[in-house]
Write a protein that binds this DNA or RNA. Structure first.
Length: 478
DNA sequence: TTTTGAGTTGTTCGA
DNA sequence: GTCGAACAACTCAAA
């Protein structure tokens, strides 16, 4: 009789392109499919929105496993204790998992592997989900690249990432003696109040939902993606980010599916290259995280360490709640609250607004996003906040201050996006919907708007705020 | 080693 | 309304 095997699922909540599950299926022997909610050891604890996603994704994974006669075993606590103990109790021969390049996870994983080896068990770590290993993308000094374009060129110059593996058709039976905790007991989902109704309408967490998204996207919105992706009004993006975050689909699967689409439809080459480069940004941020484990707290450019951020709890709260008086900013912040995501273009606008118009520390915005985004990624979230703030790698020039009115008019010309998320402005004509303060009293009245009453006056004046930011940034450089 | 060219996403102003 | 320049200098990658 073969000894039992544990497959340890982490940010790879899928059955296909899963080298550890695949190998376990081939080896045979009783199998434990394990997920450990390790709130301390795996890096930053999930934010509230991510907890919602996680709960649903675990449920989906369990359903997928059940179809193969398996089940997902849930445990909560320190993985470095739980896994060796479980391995001993179940008398397993090996624990298999996919490598992580997230520094905190990698450190924790080393502890797990050492403990297993001390106990005479095998720790089998298989290739990670990244398209390229950070070790393979180095400059001549051995450091990671800090400029995106050469980084991405380098990744693309390597051999294509391995072809994705199919999901196992059958799995060995579970180990009956290993019990699972109950997902409900983890209280990952909100109850009172239940703020996740909008999430349920917007999303289908899990591998099936991820594959559906990918194929719907490559059948439709990919056409014109290179330009339309900037528009928050309508479905012009893939919506894959939370699925990628939890590994319900792997970057390799997305990469090869996009390449395949490009072969069949050469006219889409430009759109697909653009789409792949967005996958490249995810990769870039993960590599930055690999080299900078404290990227969520420490400025990558230390010249920002004494930047005079303001403290203003009231302004922060107005920003968080979508009550700044700038329609496109408020629309974005409310979309985030309602759905757990925000359109990429609008993320830049609201981030620039917090950091530059309000002069509030980028970490405050990063933390809010961490808590409210279902796609909150330990690499992308802090790296992109630092990029906007100017403290990051390959950062935006200091004088780039987004004008929320111009951005709204340019990318939401009909005001459809604002109307959807800031319904109190929906009756205002597109001409004024991005700057209601310029509308005449009659226009405001017929749209049912009383500024300062049912929609706020702008909390800062754009021109004055811009100049204040430029002055502060100029000083930081000098 | 030194040099060279380039670098996600913008805005404002004045001609 | 449109267009180009200014906004700044610095770091990075590669030749």
């Amino acid at each position: 009789m073969k000894s039992p095997i544990i497959v340890w699922f982490r940010d790879d909540l899928r059955l296909s392109d899963h080298a550890a599950l695949r190998e376990a299926a081939q080896r045979g022997g009783p199998l434990v499919c394990l997920y450990v909610l390790d709130e301390r050891g795996g890096g930053r604890p999930h934010g509230a929105a991510s907890c919602w996603w996680l709960a649903n994704s675990l449920r989906a994974l369990d359903a997928g496993l059940k179809k193969l006669g398996q089940t997902l075993v849930l445990r909560k606590g320190d993985a470095a204790l739980i896994i060796p103990e479980l391995a001993a109790n179940a008398d397993t021969g090996a624990v298999l998992w996919l490598e992580s390049e997230v520094p905190a996870q990698a450190a924790r994983d080393r502890k797990v592997a050492q403990a297993l080896q001390r106990a005479g068990s095998e720790a089998r770590i298989l290739r990670s989900d990244l398209l390229a290993k950070p070790d393979n993308i180095r400059n001549k000094d051995g450091n990671g690249l800090r400029v995106f374009t050469p980084f991405w060129k380098r990744v693309l110059s390597l051999d294509d990432p391995a072809r994705p593996l199919a999901a196992p058709k059958t799995l060995p039976p579970p180990v009956r003696s290993v019990a699972s905790e109950r997902l409900e007991d983890w209280k990952l989902e909100p109850s009172k109040p239940d703020w996740a109704t909008g999430f349920r309408e917007a999303w289908s967490p899990g591998e099936n939902g991820a594959q559906q998204r990918l194929h719907d996207f490559l059948d439709g919105p990919i056409k014109g993606y290179a330009t339309d992706r900037d528009r928050p009004d309508g479905d012009h993006t893939s919506g894959l980010s939370p699925h990628l975050r939890f590994g319900e689909i792997s970057p390799r699967q997305v990469f090869h599916a996009a390449k395949f689409a490009a072969e069949r439809q050469p006219a889409l080459a430009r759109d697909i290259d653009k789409f792949l480069s967005e996958l490249g940004w995810r990769e870039f941020c993960r590599h930055l995280l690999f080299d900078n484990p404290d990227i969520d707290t420490r400025n990558l450019q230390s010249s920002f360490d004494d930047f005079p951020w303001r403290r203003d709890a009231k302004a922060l709260r107005a920003w968080q709640r979508g009550q700044t008086g700038y329609p496109v900013v408020d629309a974005g912040m409310r979309e985030l609250w309602h759905t757990g995501v925000m359109h990429n273009r609008v993320r830049m606008v609201v981030a620039s607004f917090l950091v530059k118009h309000l002069l509030l520390d980028w970490r405050l915005g990063e933390q809010w996003f961490w808590d409210t985004l279902v796609d909150a990624d330990p690499g992308s979230n802090p790296a992109n906040w630092q990029w906007v703030a100017g403290s990051g790698a390959d950062a935006a020039p200091y004088f780039r201050v987004f004008n929320p009115v111009l951005q709204g008019e340019k990318f939401d010309p009909d005001g459809a996006y604002v109307s959807k998320w800031v319904p109190e402005l929906a009756k205002l004509s597109p001409k004024f919907i991005h700057h209601p303060w310029d509308a005449t009293p009659i226009e405001l009245q017929s749209a049912g708007i009383v500024l300062g009453d049912n929609y706020p006056e702008p909390i800062v004046d754009h021109k004055a705020a811009r100049e204040r930011a430029l002055a502060a940034y100029r000083k930081t450089r000098a």
